[in-house]
Each structure stands twice: as C-alpha cells, then as structure tokens.
C-alpha cells in the first residue's frame, strides 16, 4: 500500500519518545545522570506530542474519537490507550521533575514509564499484524518497532548526554545501550526479512527480491542497511574508541563504509557531531524500514483500490 506518512510519523515519534523515556527512567531508577532527565523527559513528551498530532491529521473525524472505546479489542484502540496512559505518566513525571518534588512518586512513575516504553511501540507495530497483508502478518514486526524505539531513544539521549559533558562511566553505559539497541534492531530486521521471504500468498509486490534487487533496493541497501544499521554501529564503535583527537586518528575503515566514515572522521572534531550524526542515522534507518513496511504491505488481493 502507499506510504501512510501520518501514521509513519506517529509511530516514529512515539517510538522515539518512549525510547528516550526508557533511558530517563533508568537514570531515575538508578539515580544516575540527573542532568539529562528533564531535557530527556521534555524531548519524550514533545515526541509523543508530534506523534499524536500526526495521528490526529490521519483521522477523518477526530472529533468522534470518544467512540474509540467502542471496540477495545481493536489494535488501534489499544494503541491509543497505551499511548495516552504513557503520555499522562510522562507528563506527570515531567511536571514533578520540573517542580523537583515527590521523588517517590517520580520513581514509581519512572518504573511505569519504563514498563510502557516497549509496550507502546509494540502496540503501534502490532496494529499492522493483519492476515490480509501477508508481509505484515508476523509478530516480528512489532518487535522490530520496539527495537527501533530502543535505537531512536538511545541516540536521542546520546545527544543530550553529549551536551552535558558526560563522564566516562556514563558514556560507556550509554554506548553499550546504544550498541545493544542497534544490534537488536539489525537482528529483528534480518528476521523480519526472512519472514517476508517465507510469507504465505507470495506476490511480486511483497517479495524480498523487491528489496534486495528491485525498485526498493536503494531504499533498503542505502537507507536501511548503510545509513540505518552500519552508520550507527560504526558511530557507536567510534565512540567506544574514545574521542578522536585528530584526522590522524587513523581509524581503519572498511571500503563499504569508507565514504561515510571518512566524512565522519574528517568532521568529527567532537562527540557532539558524532551524536548528531548517530541520531540522524537512526531516524533515517527507522523511517526507511517503516516506508518499506508500507510499500510491501499489499493485501492478499486488491480489487477495487
């Protein structure tokens, strides 16, 4: 089907928001890096706001939204409910944080938020699990969205951490988190592709060949693989190496990523730039895979539209 941009933006930003809040919650629960909590929480709220606005524009009649409880079994209803709860939790948490009060409540809210942080992106991915669209009919899809949320959250928070002059220990932790998220993302994408290859009702519109060698190859290899996976992996790895002091740091790079890494090495005078690049790569990767999900999401048989 055609790319549903409003829905794509919704799922992208909700993932980003929930991923970010997960890290905020971890810092709250573990009592580390207090300086990034407020910017993190606000970023998370803002992302949820952008996402919700996009979904609002998706609807033909948002004013009738009160009917949404009419069918609680609906994936959309569930998605809306968990997003609303998460938004409320994060909102209250942020207010408390702003006022610097009720630390106990804050900790509880952080815990709830942490639990919800994979649930919400899972719910947004879950709505696509439909028998009508063979390329979507797998639980790997929502898992992939969760992994995407982890990557987006990690790189968003990475940026805030870099802005706050982090200590080495924090850096190491965050690096590890980002690396883990990124690996999970790569693995789920790979697993998803294997599913697509084996999905029932095969059709050229939803074939893996379309991604690997067909009209979506550039989007897949360029945006998903190169920028979306190898980019963040490389950047994380670079970060783990410690700050590049100069061009002569002489990082050996593979020919495949030579272009990017070369450019990165040339401009990466500090970690901030690396962080920005990382977030951009994560956004591109997460957007591109979502685009692909839509583009290969043809129904079993499409007769009228």
């Amino acid at each position: 089907m055609e790319i549903q941009w409003t829905l794509l933006i919704f799922s992208l930003f909700v993932s980003l928001g929930m991923g970010s809040f997960a890290i905020v919650a971890i810092t709250e629960l573990r009592g580390i890096m207090p300086g990034i909590r407020l910017p993190g929480a606000i970023t998370s709220l803002a992302a949820l706001g952008i996402g919700s606005a996009a979904s609002y524009f998706h609807l033909g009649h948002p004013e009738k939204i009160f009917h949404i409880l009419g069918n609680i079994r609906s994936g959309i209803a569930q998605e809306l409910i968990v997003t609303s709860i998460a938004s409320a939790v994060i909102f209250v948490y942020t207010v408390l944080l702003w006022k610097d009060s009720a630390p106990d409540v804050r900790r509880k809210l952080a815990l709830v938020g942490l639990i919800l942080s994979p649930v919400v992106p899972f719910a947004t991915g879950r709505i696509y699990v439909l028998a009508a669209r063979p390329a979507w009919d797998t639980w790997l899809l929502p898992l992939m969205y969760v992994a995407s949320a982890a990557v987006l959250g990690a790189f968003t928070m990475y940026l805030w951490i870099m802005l706050r002059e982090p200590d080495q220990k924090t850096l190491a932790t965050v690096n590890k988190a980002a690396l883990l998220g990124q690996v999970a993302f790569t693995v789920t994408i790979a697993a998803y592709l294997i599913y697509v290859a084996m999905a029932p009702h095969p059709h050229s519109s939803r074939s893996v060949a379309r991604l690997l060698t067909g009209d979506l190859a550039l989007l897949f290899w360029g945006a998903v693989v190169l920028i979306g996976q190898l980019g963040p992996l490389f950047l994380t790895w670079r970060n783990m190496q410690g700050p590049p002091t100069s061009l002569q740091a002489g990082v050996p790079v593979s020919p495949a990523s030579g272009g990017i890494s070369g450019a990165v090495a040339a401009t990466a005078e500090n970690r901030l730039i690396l962080a920005i690049m990382g977030l951009l790569c994560a956004l591109v990767g997460s957007t591109a895979i979502r685009m692909i999900v839509y583009l290969i999401g043809s129904s079993v048989q499409s007769y009228i539209y």
Binding site: G60, K64, H67, A132, S299, Q301
Partner: peptide, 21 residues
C-alpha cells in the same frame, strides 16, 4: 458513518481492497 472516525484501519485489514476512504 456516525461512529466512523476515518482511521482507515479497516482498509488495511481488508484482504480485497474493497473499502475506500
């Protein structure tokens, strides 16, 4: 139509593309 919010989710769920927004 009094309840439909135009979320178009049913279009995704329909295997035959016979619903339209």
């Amino acid at each position: 139509h009094n309840k439909c919010i135009g979320c178009q989710y049913c279009i995704m769920a329909c295997p035959y593309g016979v619903r339209t927004y």
